[in-house]
Amino acid sequence: MKINYIGAIGILLTMIACEKELTPTVVNDADQIVVEGYIEAGIGKDANRVTPPYVILTRAVPFQKEFTTNNIFVNGADVTVSNGTDSVKLTEFCWQNLDSVTKRRAAGVFGINFDSVQSNFNVCLYLDLTQRMKGQIGKSYWLTIKKDGKTVTSVTTIPKWIPIDSSYFIKPPGTNQNDTMVQMRAYIRDIANELNYYRYMVGINGEPYKAGRQSVYTDELIDGQYFLFNLFNREQASRGLFRRGDTLSVKWSNIDGEQYDFWRTLEFNANNQGPFSAYTRVKSNIQGGMGIWGGSVVSYLDTIVPKK
């Protein structure tokens, strides 16, 4: 739970503030390679829903330059994933080269509304087609990317499995109670005497999974507890509540500390701009570039919000 108390005072101040557009100092910097790669493990029924390892390679675009998906993807890189004994080379796919059936399937993975995709849209990713490399709990996975004589590397470890234990819905607190919205609550059974990190995303009525403004949590305050917490709808207009009758799917991931730091710093920057907030630099586990190579064990909680 995060309380933006400074924001509350900020509201009072901004009542008299005014603003204008500004051309800030140009920061010239070499374009950096941005890695977004995942390798997942799943237990039991969730094993079937594990996404094969994939990596998206892009370039950071200087702030003052135009940002379009046409100029950011890094193509033709040599991307391999190794578990120490076996290694696989990932195969590159670009959206614009796919047939329409594959496009529709891929749109789901990337959270894109297929029907509104413009003709000039493009996304490229590197995928394990061999299906040899499947994430396993407790194992480490090395990522190596070679492009134009440069090497980018990373390693990630898939942590222990701590799924959502159970969940239920209650009437939302406050006076704004209409019968259409409910608050979701869930329990987890944290493992004691070790740092555990969690991340969740929610998909509603078959829409892509969405992470909220704060998607990662740690057990530092609740170590080893059987812990009750609120699970929030990540649609901004929902105020965290879910609509009765909706079909929900919560994608719950156990991640390692490096991923926690990555998401935490990334989300901090996204959420904190203003007079009293500071900047932070995104903490990355990528050597020679930036971004994330994240191993996780995923579990899904599928449920329908009761109509009454």
Binding site: T25, D29, R59, V61, P62, F63, F110, N269, M290
Partner: peptide, 20 residues
């Protein structure tokens, strides 16, 4: 102040990275 350096894509969203 610490200026914005670059924009980058993660999780289908644009993110910001700061300069020196």
């Amino acid at each position: 102040y610490t200026p914005l350096r670059s924009l980058f894509l993660i999780n289908q969203q644009l993110n910001i990275e700061y300069g020196a």
